[in-house]
Design a protein around this nucleic acid. Sequence first.
DNA 1: GAGAAGTATCTTGATGTCAAGATATCTCGA
DNA 2: TCGAGATATCTTGACATCAAGATACTTCTC
Lengths: 167, 167
Amino acid sequence: MPEQPAPRDEVDDLVDAWARELPTLALEPVAVFSRIHRLARHLDLARREAFSTHGIESWEFDVLAALRRAGAPYELSPGRLLRETLVTSGTMTNRVDRLATRGLVERSPDPADRRGVIVRLTPAGREAVDGAFAALLEAEAALLADLSPAEQATLADLLRSLLAPYA
Amino acid sequence: MPEQPAPRDEVDDLVDAWARELPTLALEPVAVFSRIHRLARHLDLARREAFSTHGIESWEFDVLAALRRAGAPYELSPGRLLRETLVTSGTMTNRVDRLATRGLVERSPDPADRRGVIVRLTPAGREAVDGAFAALLEAEAALLADLSPAEQATLADLLRSLLAPYA
DNA sequence: GAGAAGTATCTTGATGTCAAGATATCTCGA
DNA sequence: TCGAGATATCTTGACATCAAGATACTTCTC
């Protein structure tokens, strides 16, 4: 039950423009995916903003958060980290290097596998990620304020359905 | 009316992990925004895949599509293009350079403003963008297949509400 | 109409990411 | 036990992007 329907947005204009130029195409997918694309972009900016007050960047949060979610002792392998964060191994090597330089993580050899490495959150890293996560939740909650709890749940369910094929 | 509820997804696991580690935080926003983030990523891959069969890349499509939507004679200024595609001026200069080299757009001086430039779609550019757009719609429609038309409309409406503050 | 401020585009230098490949180590079957 | 293939991480080189600034032109104000 939206209090009032949302006004036309930029994607409505986008769909109209395509409809005018290519009237024979079925444009329904654009209304969904173009909005997801744009929201993701705005979300990135909001994340950057929220994290900046805690002195970390989005890519740093992604890595630190994966370690934090793992629970004490906050350790994961680089391979596990890159699977969690969907980046390549070269990128992860670079990220861990820089986080270690900043003292937010430590690298140590894996005693069980001499090819392996263990990345562990330092106390400073844990402090940074916990603060940044709280700030992120606060910022995101503000973005959801116009939706009722029921609408939020409906939205989450519909998004889960779209994500299901990738499980 | 979903035929059957979607199975648990990776974000359900993510939320559970955070809840285990930080039980006092309200995690509702994560269920929405983390899915949007992930969907945007999968969507990027799907776009790349759909466009590759037409020999163009995502960034090329973004520029060509803006020109195509403008309608005949398919002309826009670089400034207008960068506002449409949300990139910086340096990026747009680079993109137009490469598209012109490939013969998909042409650059000419703006007769009305000697600072200005006009970027125009060539016939080859129009052919490329129309084919790529059809392929994109087809791929996106497949991703939406599990949602009923009513659910698709609900989803689009909820996303519009989230996007409204940025209008 | 002359100067100041605004606008449009391009250039430069730094950065983060990726793809491909190199190196070291492990695992499993013969 | 030996070797082939799998696995884990790191290195390298190329590239697209961005931020900041340079240049050229236009518009506004007095």
